[in-house]
Nucleic acid binder design. Structure first.
Lengths: 186, 186
DNA sequence: GTTTGTCAACTAACCGGTTGGAAGATAGTC
DNA sequence: GACTATCTTCCAACCGGTTAGTTGACAAAC
């Protein structure tokens, strides 16, 4: 057998992402993660310290990927929202992980990177408003909240929702259109 | 001791609502529910059959309450959204329960009452569009989805969000304003 | 006396976390 | 290149505590 600590660590992270996205923290099973990663339970405690810390590691890597891959574009908020909406559709585990992280008790610790990235986005919007690129109807943080939340519309859709929704690409376009109307574009 | 089956049932339902909203299905503890209800674990199995069925009972009662208490008003969608937003703030357990119901695996069963209520709302919007009361830019189901989702903006806000958000009443008004702009109102 | 509601105690299974040591890699020595 | 001491990576088996679900007997109501 090949021995490679980094590879094992990564396999554990990948397996943990799938398991946590599917079952949350309380519902995730450490044994399942170890088995899925073709590894052993003891490795998890060796590499990460425990179940909760493993979740933090997974969540941190997701946040980092998200922050790096989808920078905000204050000149094209509708396009930004549509891009986010597509990303949520293609990678449903991202939103699931974020929602678990928010719901599960005993995890009030906010991710520092996420806070910093959000703060920077608010500043960019405020600057764009000062420059007259965006209307001042909504305070910067409110506008960002609305845009980010609209991008997640179809991801968060309850299963009760009727099957009459249009296909994916059309849904992204409707999100973009909604954002467009928030900021007065024609 | 007074013996009252209905009262015991109700106490169990109330305790279960709090427990499930806080911890979800996997994280909820049957013993805690029984203790909180000043009852006994065996009663839960006697009255509801099991943990999962108890959750279904709780979820069903919440959906019923929600459907009955907040009927849609197609003549005032902004006001409807603001009302919903306020309700989500006052009763956070409603949204938490709904989110958990969506996330937890092995629960793909949709609530029949919720589906029916949503379908009726879509029909009302379609009629209002046909009557010229609402613009036809968005298909009925899409418009409903956007409005319902916007109403939940601040409930779903990630904890990473900066503390620069305005107070509750102002937030509801921003939700109403966003909806207003979706449907062309001044 | 029968039905109905209540509960403490039980159990079988499960789960997160630990341990001790086996197996592979590494580097120094001759 | 062979030998070996040492370190790193890996894992099967185990442990203590917890959990959902069961049971059987007791007590109140009618």
């Amino acid at each position: 057998m090949i021995r490679d600590a980094d590879a094992t660590r990564q396999r554990l992270l990948d397996a943990a992402l799938a398991e946590f996205a599917e079952h949350g923290i309380a519902g995730a099973r450490v044994d399942r993660i170890a088995a899925q990663a073709n590894s052993n339970k003891a490795q998890i405690y060796h590499y990460f310290g425990g179940k909760a810390q493993l979740f933090d590691a997974v969540y941190g890597s997701i946040v980092r990927r998200l922050v790096e891959s989808t920078p905000i574009d204050v000149h094209d908020l509708p396009g930004y929202a549509a891009k986010l909406a597509r990303m949520y559709d293609v990678h449903p585990e991202v939103m699931r992980l974020a929602v678990w992280h928010r719901l599960e008790p005993g995890e009030p610790e906010v991710n520092a990177l996420a806070v910093e990235a959000t703060g920077r986005k608010v500043d960019l919007i405020a600057q764009a408003q000062a420059d007259g690129l965006l209307p001042k109807r909504f305070p910067p943080a409110v506008l960002l909240g609305l845009v980010l939340h609209l991008a997640a519309t179809w991801t968060e859709a309850n299963p009760e929702f009727p099957g009459e929704l249009p296909d994916a690409e059309a849904r992204y376009e409707y999100v973009a259109e909604a954002v467009r109307r928030l900021i007065d574009l024609p």
